[in-house]
Design a protein around this nucleic acid. Structure first.
Length: 456
RNA sequence: GGCCUGGUGGCAGAGUGGUCAUGCAGCGGCCUGCAAAGCCGCGUACGCCGGUUCGAUUCCGACCUAGGCCUCCA
């Protein structure tokens, strides 16, 4: 089943054919580690995690890199305001990021390059750009000369002339051209700095990704992904740098951009202050419900975040896990889980996760109706491709709540059963109400009385 | 101001030139001691105005409206 993916570069959905099918390469712009990430930051990692899972089914080797930017002025500012070393900040939030991503069921990338480990590669790349006349030195800075790259603006659909005319920011006096961007900037003694031919300094943001991508994945990669807000200037600049530093070779063959997460109708962003931290949401809601919500819309569309939407996701998962709980006694067939064709087909169509989820609902219906091993395996197999249904039904219905007093619940259920047996329904209902007050909902079924934690 | 996306039923959210999205919620019935779950059934959609067409939610144009980028940002 061929994979088709929308390419921001051509603005069309195209059949995905990697340069080398034996080694598919993909790069996702990762976080700048100066704070906890918000749920909007997790959308790309989640949807591209699904893409990687899909790619791994189609190709023998996929090399997926997600970088960590650990040198940046925001990090410097955070360290300064908290009175700690920069390394303290970056170590803490790098780890927090890994934990948050793992919490959302995102598989670790194959490579997690850090900017500070690639300073020499960055310096070499800048040197190459200078040598080839694509960059110039000014007051200890090295700037990319946009005028030297005629294709600048092609990815983001921008006209260089208009960019110059429409420049709203104050232009640094040492720039030849307002759109020129910094590759290297000088540092003062209180800031992190590395020796270079131009100054004791640090790299600009854009060059980091270019250098890390080339160092690990090669001059030309198959897919470069990130949020649509990075399309300009970040990705446009990456294209310019990498293409020029590599003698005109194509940098990324596919550019994929996820839409923004909104909250109260506005883009969720740190600068707007309307953020919900993954770190906090993971404590308040079942993690899989967060993941489900993030892929319940098509990845290129905007997606609005709300408590109501989380509750819907929880209800949906309740239904699927209920099926699995009823089939707990059904042994799975040997040989691993199959991937249902319809789920895969949906994903092959430019990662249509909403369609894939609709298929999963059908599979849940089938499993409930048929109750056989093959149907159960199909449901779990479809879930696995999406990174869902990864826990036991029992764990799901306990909502990861370690405070529930299971012994007391079981005791009350026994008392209720005794009351029911004696047809003392007033007593039985009183016990059910008592459990309800504890946040426990129950249901009587053929396999006895079940209980779940009522919580989103 | 420039560039780019969207506007689908109570909510979420796919998709399609003419026959079904799907989920959540709601309503009626069955089941149940009563519930819950499940099963059966029901309902309400494609921003607005034109155009193309035998026929448009789907194609084209205008308009209204929401959002993104143009500055750090997933």
């Amino acid at each position: 089943m061929p994979i088709s993916l929308y390419n921001s570069l051509s603005r069309r959905t195209e059949p995905f054919r990697p340069l080398n099918p034996d080694r598919v390469t993909m790069y996702l712009c990762g976080p700048t580690v100066y704070n906890y990430v918000h749920i909007g930051n997790a959308r790309g990692p989640v949807v591209f995690d699904v893409l990687v899972r899909l790619l791994r089914r189609h190709f023998p080797a996929v090399l997926y890199a997600r970088n960590i930017t650990d040198v940046d002025d925001k990090i410097n500012a955070a360290a300064q305001s908290q009175g700690v070393e920069i390394g303290t900040i970056t170590a803490k939030f790098s780890q927090a990021y890994r934990e948050d991503m793992a919490g959302l069921g995102i598989a670790p990338p194959d490579l997690e390059p850090r900017a500070t480990d690639h300073i020499q590669a960055i310096i070499r790349m800048i040197g190459q750009l200078l040598e080839d006349g694509h960059a110039y030195v000014a007051e200890g800075h090295v700037l990319f000369d946009v005028g030297s790259y005629p294709d600048y603006g092609r990815l983001s659909g921008r006209d260089t002339e208009e960019l110059i005319a429409g420049a709203r920011v104050e232009v640094a006096p040492y720039k030849k051209n307002p759109t020129d961007f910094v590759l290297w900037k000088p540092s003062t003694p209180d800031l992190p700095g590395w020796p270079s031919p131009w100054s004791l300094g640090r790299p600009g943001w854009h060059i980091e990704c270019s250098a890390m991508s080339a160092a690990h994945l090669g001059d030309t990669i198959d897919i470069h992904a990130g949020g649509i807000d990075l399309l300009f200037p970040h990705h446009e600049n990456e294209v310019a740098q990498s293409t020029c530093a590599h003698g005109g070779k194509v940098f990324a063959r596919w550019w994929m951009h996820n839409g923004m997460l909104t909250f109260d109708g506005r883009k969720m962003s740190k600068s707007l202050g309307n953020v919900l931290l993954v770190h906090e949401l993971l404590k308040a809601h079942p993690p899989e419900a967060l993941r489900l919500r993030l892929m319940s819309g098509h990845y290129r569309q905007p997606l609005d975040w709300s408590d109501g939407a989380i509750a819907q996701s929880v209800s949906t998962l309740d239904g699927w896990y209920r099926v699995l709980r009823d089939l707990a006694h059904v042994e799975l067939p040997d040989g691993g889980l199959p991937v249902p064709e319809r789920v895969e087909a949906a994903l092959c169509d430019d990662l249509n996760t909403p369609q894939a989820l609709a298929e999963l609902s059908q599979l849940a219906d089938q499993a409930r109706i048929n109750g056989d091993a093959a149907s159960k395996a199909a449901l779990l197999g479809g879930g696995a491709l999406l990174g869902l249904l990864q826990q036991s039904p029992e764990a799901w219905f306990k909502r990861g709540d370690n405070h529930v007093d299971e012994a007391r619940i079981e005791d009350l259920l026994r008392q209720r059963q005794a009351a029911r047996a004696g047809r003392d329904f007033a007593r039985a209902d009183a016990i059910r109400d008592e459990l309800g007050a504890m946040g426990i909902v129950i249901e009587d079924g053929a396999q006895g009385t079940r209980w779940s934690v009522l919580k989103t």
